[in-house]
């Protein structure tokens, strides 16, 4: 009985230590992964695409303003 208990205790300790060591290793691997992904990905460019999107948004806004202005003038002229 006591022997069994001490065995269970050892398993508990080794198990917890192994879980922590393994997941810590994975933690480092994830750091590495992030760096690898970061060095390679800018080619397909998250920044340019974002800039493009903001450009688009700007043009959209301008276009909307132009259309609104046009509609306003049209309505005013044709009343």
């Amino acid at each position: 009985m006591e022997q069994q208990l001490s065995e269970a205790f050892t398993i508990m300790l080794t198990g917890m230590v192994t879980v922590f060591v393994f997941l810590t290793l994975l933690l480092f691997a994830m750091g590495l992964l992030r760096r690898v992904a970061a060095t390679n990905e800018p080619e397909q460019a998250p920044t340019p695409s974002r800039r493009k999107r903001t450009n688009e948004a700007a043009t959209d806004g301008q276009r909307l303003a132009a259309i609104t202005a046009a509609v306003h003038t049209y309505r005013r002229d044709h009343e």
Binding site: Q4, L5, E7, A8, F9, I11, M12, G15, M16, V19, F20, F22, L23, T24, L26, L27, M30, G31, R34
Partner: peptide
């Protein structure tokens, strides 16, 4: 990624219960 450590800590439930079952 740090939250990985939380996932590890919660596994103590497993190993403590192993001890509990034998007890």
């Amino acid at each position: 990624p740090r939250t990985l450590i939380l996932g590890a800590a919660a596994q103590f439930g497993i190993f403590a219960t192993l001890f509990g079952a034998i007890a």
